[in-house]
Nucleic acid binder design. Structure first.
Lengths: 231, 231
DNA sequence: CATGTGTATTGATTATTATCAATAATGCAT
DNA sequence: ATGCATTATTGATAATAATCAATACACATG
């Protein structure tokens, strides 16, 4: 539970995102005066697609999903968010609206920073600004990659990509516990849950992975990577 | 042909992108000293996915496509580029690589500006920098929108969206001449060309559009918009 | 004018994926 | 322990889209 104790001050916060290393003590002080922390339970919405983006946020503990609400209630999960990530809406420079939703997967703590404060510092601190650009472009590159994956890969490839992503980037372990529901795995891979089950079973039978409930192990990573790179 | 006369100087260039309005005469002078123009014939590559991005570019005349080369030689067209657009690679702040290709569709003229010069001005001119952020985020928002469209819409919806895009955003006329090949239309909609033909024929039979060769008219825009918003 | 190349077009076939329907398992509240 | 809601799981069926094969058509080239 100690993860959820409020952080006393930005200046000596041990859970701030790397981007804050570019700020002076004075700037951190300014942020500290214009921030607040909120704890979310699993399933709670941190912010929702369409609302005004009045804050940028620093994700300090837990696990969340960034997702888009599409047609007919269908969801697409863009990626998961871990500590200690810095997240902004996609539209703070465009229309001050959020273009995706962020929802807690585990119990999570988020530090909200007022957008105006953020913008002020952005315009006066070049390194911070450059770092923000880098983050924005990384998000763009990620979404371009996802565009090709979802549009051109078969379901096998999409699932393989999603599982490799979870194993390597999120949990950094190989037998890993799927921290999201199976429906969410399908939404991360951009397909129906039933189709996902069929393919998971297939992979399991062919001993490319082993699956017992939510515990998954990638048994043949080489082959699995190949499948991901156009299954 | 007068479109393809080299522009004498940035300061009095009548074909520069809106973003350059934020620059001082001195800055325009600097850009002028570090730029060059190139004319491309239809089909020629302006820059290719994967190469180093050494320049940013201002598209001064013609028509080009921004596309990604995916798996098995399959192409996905993200959007078309008209004068007078400003284009950068998606990775100048990340890995100095291009993440998509730009290819001339019509005979086109492009003004190349050295990346270092661009970066220098970016770091010293806040308004210019903010405008660049806006452009980057618009690109991001567009690709997020495309992600949902391609992943969740049926082919009818994708084609309708592509045709509305061409009519409204690119040609700004309703009976319009498809300035791209039918294959490229399919690549813009993210589907196979044969599937596209089938659906175009369908739309034509149902009098939602009329199609004679490359001349297309959207006859029932209301219905077509509905189809686009989840066909 | 004959030839070839590339685009346009269509129909038939096949492959892939989503949906539907049903059941099992799980966790939570009483 | 019992009932209820949610998630997990599977198989059958239907819908959708891709591929294949064939032909037509336009344009450039010797």
């Amino acid at each position: 539970m100690s993860d959820f104790v409020l952080n006393s001050h930005c200046v000596n916060c041990c859970k701030r995102s790397p981007i804050f290393e570019f700020l002076s003590e004075k700037e951190l002080q300014l942020i500290n005066d214009h921030r607040h922390e909120v704890v979310y339970s699993p399933g709670e919405t941190i912010f929702k697609q369409g609302v005004a983006c009045t804050h940028v946020l620093s994700f300090t503990s837990g696990l969340a999903k960034i997702h888009m609400e599409g047609y007919e209630g269908k969801n697409l999960i863009l990626r998961l968010v871990k500590p200690v990530e810095f997240i902004t809406g996609a539209g703070i420079f465009v229309n001050e609206r959020h273009h995706y939703s962020v929802t807690a997967v585990d119990k999570s703590c988020v530090c909200f920073i007022e957008k105006d404060t953020f913008m002020t510092i952005l315009s006066s601190n070049k390194k911070f600004c450059a770092e923000f650009m880098t983050l924005t472009q990384q998000t763009l590159i990620h979404s371009l990659h996802k565009l090709i994956s979802l549009n051109q890969k078969h379901s096998q490839g999409k699932i393989a990509e999603a599982l490799i992503y979870l194993s390597k980037e999120i949990y950094q372990s190989n037998p890993f516990k799927l921290g999201i529901s199976k429906l969410e795995l399908a939404e991360l891979a951009g397909m129906s849950k039933e189709g996902m089950f069929k393919i998971l079973r297939e992979f399991d039978k062919e001993k490319i992975i082993s699956m017992e409930g939510s515990k998954i192990e990638i048994l043949n990573l080489d082959l699995f990577s190949q499948i991901s790179n156009k299954g």
